[in-house]
Simulated assay, not measured.
Amino acid sequence: MNYYISRNYKGLNSAGNKAKSDIEGIVERTCGFRNAGLPLSTYTNTVVHFAMNLAGVLKAPFCLRKGDVLLLQYPLKKYYAFVCNMAHLRGAKVVTLIHDLGSFRRKALTVEQEIKRLNHSDFVIAHNDKMKKWLLDNGCKAQLSSLGIFDYVSKSPLPKNEIFSSDKDGKKEYVVVYAGALAQRKNAFLYEWGDYISTYKVALYGSNFDVDNVKGKEHFIYNGFVKSDDFISSVKGHFGLVWDGASMESCTGNFGEYLKLNNPHKTSFYIRSGLPVIIWRQAALADFVESHGIGVCIDSLKDLDKLHERISMEDYQRMKDNVLRESKLLQEGHYASTAVKEVLDKMDKQ
């Protein structure tokens, strides 16, 4: 029998919680997994949150028998090694699907500590081949595979197909969408960007945008916070931007280094919304975007002012068609189910 452990998620609006709850539903629906923990819940009280998760973790090992498989979504914080050890004592195998590496984003662990934790697992599903290589190079002894990209499950219908329009001089006009954290301390590049825009508009979705301190505010369309399902059904734009940090020139600092390894859930969100993606060329997902023909890779945000010269109407429509195909796959849970089934198949052959 195959199992996962559901959690209390304190709500499902954040990207991390949305991704984990999606995985639970996908593996149950497509791979026959059962929940060994408590039912999924969304209590926001910190004490209740802790108690529910602890109870689920303590319950789960008693469901396991020899030959079973337990899928864990990482990080599981202080419970991870305990659950792996208990599963092995019961004769089960552990498959870990990585969502976040604490040694990068939060610096909560050293690389050595993180690898030591992950080595409790029998199989590890990394985000992509670059993360897989990083794990291998840093001493991960578990068998490794790649997810490809995170799925994004939503029943929302897609908005009307957007195409490039032309201004009175016949020049193509387009809108770049950016959804996420808009505060200056998180994404300072937003506040410098306006000085480098002349051929397009930027549609912003999110909270805490300081309109008074942005340069070239006439180039921005601020939509405020919009719930994810509403965004998918109503977003107006031509591209979704994946970019982090302070610099216009590249994705710098810890966020930039992490983009070289991880799959931002935002990328899946844009694709599920029918938006071709603009992504930093050094990002790990740039390979996926290029190989699937679903967007454009850039070195600098300054490149965007000439994007209309690089992309014809036909090029854009081709990207759009490819994105709509991928959007359907993300909705179906294609990538998670494929990755998990491949691991189960390898286990059966061992």
Rank of each mutant, 00 (worst) to 15 (best):
S250R: 04
H292T: 15
N213S: 07
L307W: 13
L136T: 15
I311G: 05
S250C: 15
F164A: 08
Y3M: 13
T252Y: 12
G274I: 12
S234M: 11
L275F: 03
S6I: 15
V69T: 14
C140H: 14
P75G: 09
D68E: 08
G253K: 10
V202F: 04
M248V: 11
E332V: 08
Y316A: 00
I115Y: 06
A286K: 10
Y4G: 06
K20W: 10
S233F: 04
N223M: 03
A284S: 12
C63A: 06
L89R: 02
K260C: 12
P157V: 07
D210S: 08
K260P: 01
A55T: 12
L136Q: 03
K18D: 15
K201W: 08
L158G: 15
V95R: 00
L330E: 15
V175N: 04
S273M: 13
E257R: 09
R105S: 05
N13P: 02
K171E: 05
F269P: 00
K168I: 12
D210I: 03
D287Y: 08
M1A: 12
M52N: 08
I278E: 11
L261C: 04
L97E: 10
A36I: 02
N254M: 14
P264N: 05
S166I: 04
T44N: 13
L259G: 03
Y335L: 11
I23G: 00
A81W: 00
G91P: 11
D230E: 08
A183S: 07
V176K: 04
P75F: 05
A283D: 07
D68V: 01
N45I: 13
S233M: 12
R29V: 08
Y258K: 05
P264R: 06
Y335N: 02
I5H: 08
Y174V: 02
K171A: 13
L304F: 05
I221H: 09
K107P: 15
V289C: 12
A283E: 07
S312C: 11
K236D: 04
N2G: 01
S300Q: 05
E114A: 11
Y43K: 15
M319F: 08
H49T: 09
Y9P: 00
C140Q: 15
V175R: 05
K141L: 15
D137A: 09
A181S: 05
S21L: 01
K172P: 00
L40Q: 09
E28W: 06
G32S: 04
P276C: 09
G194I: 05
K66C: 06
C140I: 10
A181L: 04
G256A: 12
S337R: 06
T199Y: 11
S198W: 13
